[in-house]
Design a protein around this nucleic acid. Sequence first.
DNA 1: CCGGGTGGCTTAAACGTTTAAATTATACCA
DNA 2: TGGTATAATTTAAACGTTTAAGCCACCCGG
Lengths: 342, 342
Amino acid sequence: MPTIKDVAREAGVSIATVSYVLNDSGAVSEATHQRVLQAVEKLGYRPSVIAQGLQARESRMIGYSWRPMPPDQFNPILEKFIHGMAEAAARHGYHVLAFPSTEASDEISPYREMVERERVDGFALSNTNLDDPRVHYLLDIDFPFVAFGRANPEWDFAWVDVDGAAGVEQAVNHLLELGHRRIACLAWPEESLTGQYRLTGYRQAMAAAGLEVQAGWVIRAENHYRHAYQAAQTWLTQPPTRRPTAVVALTDLMAIGVMNAAADAGLTVGRDLAVVGFDDAPITGYLRPPLTSLRQPIAEIGERMVTMLIDLVRGETPSPAQVLLKPRLIVRDSTRLSKREM
Amino acid sequence: MPTIKDVAREAGVSIATVSYVLNDSGAVSEATHQRVLQAVEKLGYRPSVIAQGLQARESRMIGYSWRPMPPDQFNPILEKFIHGMAEAAARHGYHVLAFPSTEASDEISPYREMVERERVDGFALSNTNLDDPRVHYLLDIDFPFVAFGRANPEWDFAWVDVDGAAGVEQAVNHLLELGHRRIACLAWPEESLTGQYRLTGYRQAMAAAGLEVQAGWVIRAENHYRHAYQAAQTWLTQPPTRRPTAVVALTDLMAIGVMNAAADAGLTVGRDLAVVGFDDAPITGYLRPPLTSLRQPIAEIGERMVTMLIDLVRGETPSPAQVLLKPRLIVRDSTRLSKREM
DNA sequence: CCGGGTGGCTTAAACGTTTAAATTATACCA
DNA sequence: TGGTATAATTTAAACGTTTAAGCCACCCGG
């Protein structure tokens, strides 16, 4: 690989002049400028990112880590999220460094390692939670990061999030328009901040419609198929005149659990029970019936996070520093075919 | 961040001594050794990866790129694959750099960029194909890489692959044991090398069982739901005594297309038609019926690729340099309930 | 008692950049 | 013509490491 010295020799100038030409700084005569560019072209010279990094004390890397899903669960948005970030980052001369999260016991040590060894200039976080220790640590050492998801409202940091409340509200309103009145919600445990926001959307939409949320209409469960299946069973064993006619599940995986429970109870999803999911996993369109779901603007989230992060790395404050994006309801047969006579 | 100079000052030695202590090289007295380690501890010093990289002319980065799936398709193994690589890499002091592949027109320029700017020490490739231009380029410039998948058999390079032929053979044998005789295969276009291997497994298993592959039993299609659905329809419109009783699809996505086509034709998958997929996507267990599929040992693939690549980066030849791993047939109801009277 | 070997440490160069400061050449003005 | 401002270029230091080479004191053998 040719270095700046080779270019300098080839062009008959000092390495400083080459550097000035390449960075468009300093005062260089037009003739020299051309000569240097020709030498660069001839040798196929590209500056070494490592040497530049040492000089500038930066790595031009964005660190990102995630906890892998158990084999029976899926993360439908991860691939697009990483790719979206990688693409946006590349446009700014940055790259995404994927590092593993191992034990849940010590969440921050992989992050600390990256910071201390100067591997990354900033982090993208996802799956943040209230009092997230990573957010706490990074705020503490004042290291640049942007989160996908909110955390403790008292902490001031840059984040991008999907407006789960607005999303679920859309879903409930859609069901209301179809004539549903007994609408249940399959929610997450109380600790989950994202779960809280989404559940709030459900409660607000119901309240706005003047509907009381009956006891038992909200069931909290972990994001597992089996839990969702069991929760649905408790609803479906109620008499037809009392049981929910529609279910909003906080993820597609849980929605699938509900759909299968309904089918196993002899009900036709879409006609006897409307189901809505969240995430719009690629699979949703191929389920029977295809699942209505809330699609998150993943590419935009990745893009926004990267540009905000680069602002922070450069010492600027991104504006806005908090971004809430609306998900879009993709209507499919799991609700469309369930129109109720009003 | 403290540097080696700070440690040297703190310990009252030269920076060379600090370096010798940290790298366990050179001759350092026990007393000095201790003093340096204490200074390191006290200051919380960690060597800068960038400075080490400049010195050693290496980045300790493994580049990996993939083409994102269209929104209605899924890549069930990508997440585990990257995470597996990231984990194995981290154990050896390496990290995974994710860079985007943009246009299909110029596949190699993102790779060239990474090479020329010295961003990575080697590459992990996936979705290789016969005469893959990336493999060609990297062989040409003699840059370290390991591929997930084979390419032109005349090229000598390191790869790890899943034995698709053995996998499909397993699947066909499983169907044969259940009493199936009219077994169809939903294959990929001829250009796909992976598709060729898998199809070979089908043909071999059929031949070994003394069964002739009837015209029309093999249909080639792109890896899309809709194509799979249509292919299945052409089989299912045949009279029951002639049509295939089992289908081996080369991916889960295509298997889902077949399952839905069968259901829409009034058949019960599992009883009237057995279906096998490939990849064992997390969703397969939740389909109705749950889909029998071939699981690839993703974590092991990532692990192997990384260790082989690190060998190559160090100038050693990995042994073995070609690894073929067997997938495992995960039997579920989509075949289990289809036992035929023999 | 002197020479050579060696253990233990430091000096200094190198990796490939950027950039402040110094130097040289050129032009302009009094 | 001499001095100064300015344009163009070079020199050299710096970023944080590693490591070859050098240095010094000490010990040991002859």
